[in-house]
Simulated scan of single mutants.
Amino acid sequence: MQLKVFPQEALANHLGISIRIPIPTPFIAGLGVIGFILGIVSFAKNKDRSILTILSILAGLLIIF
């Protein structure tokens, strides 16, 4: 018997449903790193202090670390 870590996996396997992400994970991580770099550039060059710029920087930090 295989141990299921996430209850969603157990339910999906029980129902015969396959859960797939349509975009590869490295592609998503690459977009996060690009957003992080652009957020840093915008923050430094244009003194942009909007909440979305700061959120893109924080999301990029989560992906990197």
Rank of each mutant, 00 (worst) to 15 (best):
A44W: 10
I54K: 15
S18Y: 00
I57V: 12
F6M: 10
V41E: 06
V5T: 07
I34K: 04
E9N: 14
F43T: 02
T25F: 07
I57M: 12
T53R: 14
S18L: 01
K47H: 09
D48H: 02
I64R: 00
E9Q: 15
H14R: 15
G39R: 03
A59L: 15
I19G: 02
A10G: 09
L3K: 14
E9T: 13
F43C: 01
G30W: 08
Q2H: 05
I19W: 06
H14F: 15
I28L: 15
P7S: 09
I21L: 10
V5K: 03
G60M: 02
G39Q: 05
I57A: 06
K4A: 04
Q8W: 10
K47L: 02
G35Y: 09
I37K: 00
K4H: 13
G32A: 14
L61F: 12
I28Q: 10
I19C: 08
D48N: 15
N13F: 09
I51N: 12
A59W: 13
I17T: 04
R49V: 04
F6G: 00
A10E: 15
E9K: 12
Q2G: 01
F43S: 05
K45E: 06
I23V: 14
F6H: 13
I34T: 04
G16C: 07
I21S: 11
R49T: 11
I57C: 08
G60C: 01
I37H: 00
I37Q: 00
